[in-house]
Amino acid sequence: MVNFNGKLVEATDSKLTSENRGYKYGDALFETLKVVNSKIFFWEDHYFRLMASMRIMRMDIPMNFTMEFLEEEILKTVEANGLSNSVARVRLNVDRGEGGKYLPGEDASINYNIVAETHPNPFYTIDDAFYEVDLYKDYYMAPGLLSGLKSNNKAIQVIGSIYAKENDLNNCLVLNTNKSVIEALNGNLFLVKGDRIKTPPLEDGCLKGIMRQQVLEVLRKDVNLIVEEASISPFELQKADELFITNVIVGIQPISKYRKKDYGSEFAKSVITKINAKLRLA
Rank of each mutant, 00 (worst) to 15 (best):
R280W: 09
E166V: 05
L219E: 05
L216C: 06
Y124N: 00
L146E: 14
V94W: 01
Y112H: 09
D262G: 03
W43E: 10
R91N: 08
S38W: 02
I126Y: 05
E106C: 05
S151E: 09
T118F: 10
T17I: 14
G205A: 09
Y47D: 06
I182L: 10
G251A: 09
P120K: 12
E106Y: 11
Y47F: 14
T66P: 03
Y139I: 13
N81C: 15
K221I: 11
Y258W: 12
T125I: 14
A11K: 14
E73M: 08
P143G: 05
T32W: 04
A116C: 15
E72T: 13
M1L: 14
L103V: 15
N224H: 12
Y47G: 06
D27K: 04
E71T: 13
N113E: 13
I162F: 04
Y23S: 05
D128T: 14
R220V: 08
P234H: 13
E117K: 15
N152E: 08
S265D: 03
L281E: 13
L173G: 00
A52K: 06
I40F: 05
V174Q: 00
N152S: 12
K24Q: 15
R259K: 13
E31P: 02
I226P: 00
N167C: 11
L16H: 05
E73C: 02
Q253G: 00
L103E: 06
Y112V: 07
Y102C: 10
I275R: 01
N188G: 07
L75Q: 03
L92G: 01
D138L: 14
F235C: 04
M141C: 11
G26S: 06
F123T: 07
A282F: 09
A11S: 15
R58Y: 14
A230P: 01
V133F: 03
Y258H: 06
Q253T: 13
L149P: 02
E79N: 14
G105D: 10
S180F: 06
L207E: 03
A129H: 11
D45R: 09
R58I: 11
K76G: 01
E228C: 07
G209I: 06
L29F: 08
K193R: 09
F267I: 12
N113S: 15
V94I: 14
K179Q: 11
E44K: 15
F190D: 01
S38R: 08
M54R: 04
E228S: 06
Y163C: 06
K208S: 12
N64Q: 11
V36N: 01
A155D: 09
L237E: 00
G144P: 01
L175K: 01
A142Q: 13
M63W: 10
I114C: 02
V192S: 02
L146M: 14
M59T: 05
T177K: 10
L16T: 10
L149H: 02
L70Q: 02
T246S: 07
R212E: 03
V227M: 04
D107T: 14
K198T: 15
E31R: 07
K137Q: 14
N93F: 05
M57Q: 08
T273Y: 08
D27E: 12
E203G: 09
Q253C: 08
G251L: 04
I40S: 01
I275L: 12
M1A: 12
F190P: 01
Y124K: 06
I197V: 15
I249E: 03
I255D: 00
P62W: 09
V87N: 03
Y47L: 07
K179D: 11
G22V: 07
L173W: 02
